[in-house]
Nucleic acid binder design. Structure first.
Lengths: 248, 248
DNA sequence: CATTTTCGAGAGCACTGCTCTTGCTTTGGA
DNA sequence: TCCAAAGCAAGAGCAGTGCTCTCGAAAATG
């Protein structure tokens, strides 16, 4: 409703935003470890103690930045799906997957320190607060939605699934995507960290002096991940996959 | 030749080792961000300025710990290969791959902060010095050696390789493993960060409230990676459970 | 034995996160 | 309209950090 509650309340959100902006600037410039409350306050022309009226501690400020970063990369992922063409065949679903992966990687390359903040090692006093779990799921949900669209149009092959993983597969399916086959959900949940492994290695310097043509390499790896999930399959002779519900 | 050059030289290596040990203790206890030169010196009964005779800066100390961590995880990987049975068939090569992955993951779970130091976000103003590149390659070399053994015994399928990745594939092959087919090298170099993506997500809390049976999930994902490279696919240690290969 | 090098100790600088107290300003109820 | 309550900025201060410099003692070297 954003009711106008007087100058004071308005000033508060403005100052809060200014603090986050300046903090994000320092984060992008120097990294999370060098982010200093005093420096932020100094840059904003206030004294450091005044900043504690807005964020009770440095960790709380970092948490706010983490939430924003999750939202930002999540929005980038969703926008990649929204702007892409409507898939018109099995191969198009795989292409959509690759496009989504590319958008996530592009965001990471454009915001390396924010990426490190959320997908790198957890910060000092790390205990992911509840606020972060919803924004953190946005990229995962985007990945799921691509696979779900493919499944609905019947262009999805079933990955193999060992017997000993069945319980976990049903658990994952129930909590993440009850409308998808468990074997697909397992492959999807496996592809998810592998995608970020590719991005992290590139971003954190592990590819230095190893992989040169990183765009092509990433596109290839993302396409292989799509294939691993069952995307892009011609599904010869298979009718639109009957939605096997995980319920027993 | 570790010639005895007097009490002073001997004391120096002893003190250096003691500093690293204590620093490693604090690293394991609190993480890299909380590692304090003064605290290390305090615990060792010396004054902080004396510590600078052994390590010119905090970053240099961290670099020493990084090198040690790379050596440690590399040794764990190599030892997993050394103690395992000699592979006697295509399936055994895949099992060796999974065992290797498991050993790397086990090391990571046992040394979370050291893992974060080398595979998490790079610390503040650090640029990986030359000293780290050789130890950093040990795990990668172990992965390569498994695939090489499989290739030599003929039990290796060729992964697909797009045309646009051919130049990069040959570059990678020339620098990493000239005796392996380029398509295999590409798949291997892709599997490498994906393996660490799986470990990092588990270790950094991304699997919380998502994946429960992590041992089984990891074993499955590692086996799929093996299959992706061309190694015979089946889960290790178990009787030849006939995995359903993806119809193609 | 004399000299050079090496080392530990201490003081000190500039910085950090954070707390507490002191006044000033805005706000909302009587 | 007035006044107490709440919100806020500022300053001082505490305990900690990485790092530099100087000084005196000890060891290695000639």
């Amino acid at each position: 409703m954003t009711t106008i509650r007087g100058a004071r309340a308005r000033a508060r959100i403005e100052v809060t935003a200014a603090i986050k902006d300046e903090a994000r600037r320092q984060l992008a410039a120097e990294g999370a470890a060098k982010l200093s409350l005093r420096a932020v306050a100094r840059e904003l022309g206030m004294v450091s103690s005044a900043l504690y009226r807005y964020f009770p501690s440095r960790d709380e400020l970092l948490t706010a930045l983490i939430v924003d970063a999750y939202d930002s990369i999540g929005a980038a992922a969703e926008s990649a799906l929204a702007t892409g063409p409507t898939p018109t065949g099995p191969a198009a679903h795989a292409a959509r997957w690759v496009d989504l992966c590319r958008a996530v990687r592009a965001w990471a390359l454009a915001h390396p320190h924010e990426y490190a903040l959320i997908y790198g090692s957890p910060v000092p006093g790390y205990t992911a607060p509840r606020d972060t779990v919803v924004p953190a799921a946005r990229v995962g949900n985007a990945l799921i939605s691509v696979v779900r669209d493919a499944h609905r149009s019947g262009g999805l092959a079933l990955p193999p699934l060992g017997e000993e993983l069945r319980p976990e597969a049903h658990r994952l399916t129930a909590t993440l995507a009850p409308d998808l086959p468990p074997a697909v959900v397992v492959a999807l949940v496996a592809a998810w960290p592998q995608l970020f492994g590719l991005i992290s290695f590139e971003l954190f310097g592990q590819f230095n002096h190893v992989v040169e043509d990183r765009d092509a390499f990433f596109a290839h790896a993302a396409a292989r991940l799509a294939h691993e999930i069952g995307l892009g399959a011609h599904t010869p002779g298979s009718p639109p996959a009957p939605a096997v519900l995980p319920g027993e």
